[in-house]
């Protein structure tokens, strides 16, 4: 029997998947090596986290708790947002606590603190405190215990110091003062904070999640059980921009470029555009550079889906005939 001649769509549908991997790899590598400035639009859930944290500026009776609930496999999405939030806190003199309940999160938590600390003179126990790794088995007793007394619930910090003796704890008692909990997760860990810290004590809870988890969290944003959410790499890019536009805003003062933080404003963020090549530290723009590659990769995927669907309908029509 004579072999039937394959048309373009037949060939595309029979294409070895490895060619698709190659095209996706190129779609990511080229925008990273040849950078361009794609615009980052900031969404309301990200703005709300920024505004809440910023409202704690300079206050000794307020603190943010960052809970690291992920391992290295989702570092690409969550690490940039963790660094951006820590930078925001250090820049604006906001007290911050860090904690984790899974062993694999411990080195990532330490790494995020080390990275964010580089450009700031902050002191452990005074400006921030790392509660360290606590076993998963006592997650719930700690979450509930913090509603009564934070220092009593965690007892010791990562360096083995008694938490109640630390200077940072002078005006911090429970969720009334530690008024924002942000859980960074690739899982449903944030729901434990919603279920216990929010429902029982009325704590403000926010989520920094991988994009996979984002869609599941929207009902909780709508009800106000989550005050804000950073969704995947896009959320991280948004927060990086918010920190650059407001918290680390630079102005020329007496001929010297000086950091002059400013209050959040919707008008300012709408019109602001930051040239990525002007940001010297690559860690501060990781997510935004990543979003350039993301944009190109998404266009490629849309083209693949369109070609695949057109091919399907063309072949179906041909088979019918």
């Amino acid at each position: 029997m004579a072999e039937q001649k394959m048309n373009f769509f037949d060939k595309m549908q029979a294409l070895d998947r490895r060619y698709i991997y190659l095209v996706v790899a190129l779609a990511i590598i080229l925008p990273l090596v040849i950078p361009f400035n794609s615009r980052t639009y900031v969404t309301e859930p990200s703005e709300n986290i920024y505004k809440k944290i910023d409202s704690f500026t300079g206050r000794k009776d307020r603190a943010v708790l960052m809970c690291f609930s992920h391992d290295a496999s989702t570092m690409a999405e969550l690490f940039p947002m963790e660094v951006a939030i820590l930078r925001h806190c250090f820049q604006r003199n906001i007290q911050v606590f860090t904690i984790c309940f899974i062993p694999a999160a411990k080195p990532l938590m330490d790494y995020a603190l080390q990275t964010a600390k580089e450009d700031y003179t902050v002191q452990s126990g005074v400006d921030y405190v790392n509660f360290g790794y606590k076993p998963w088995g006592i997650f719930l007793p700690i979450v509930l215990g913090m509603g009564d007394d934070v220092a009593k619930a965690v007892e010791t910090d990562d360096e083995g110091r008694i938490v109640s003796n630390l200077e940072i704890m002078k005006e911090i008692k429970n969720y009334n003062e530690m008024n924002l909990v942000i859980d960074f997760a690739a899982s449903a860990a944030v729901y434990i904070w919603i279920e216990y810290a929010r429902a029982r004590f009325g704590a403000n809870v926010a989520a920094g999640v991988t994009a996979v988890m984002a869609a599941d969290n929207f009902p909780y944003l709508q009800t106000g059980q989550l005050i804000g959410m950073l969704a995947g790499l896009k959320g991280a890019a948004e927060y990086e921009k918010l920190v650059d536009v407001f918290a680390t805003h630079k102005e020329m003062v007496n001929g010297v470029e000086t950091v002059v933080p400013r209050e959040f404003s919707k008008e300012v963020i709408k019109d602001s555009w930051i040239k990525l090549s002007d940001i010297k530290n690559p860690v501060y723009k990781t997510a935004r550079i990543g979003m350039n590659a993301q944009t190109v990769a998404h266009i490629m995927i849309i083209v693949f889906i369109a070609v695949g669907n057109i091919g399907y309908f063309v072949n179906r029509k041909k088979n019918k005939n």
Binding site: I28, L32, A76, G232, Q294, I301
Partner: peptide
């Protein structure tokens, strides 16, 4: 969102290879 997440993970690794390792970024 899932597609975005998976691509983000790949971007993270390629950023490491191109940036930290090969210094091409």
């Amino acid at each position: 969102y899932t597609v975005m997440a998976r691509i983000s993970l790949l971007i993270g690794r390629i950023q490491f290879l191109m940036g930290d390792w090969l210094h091409l970024m």
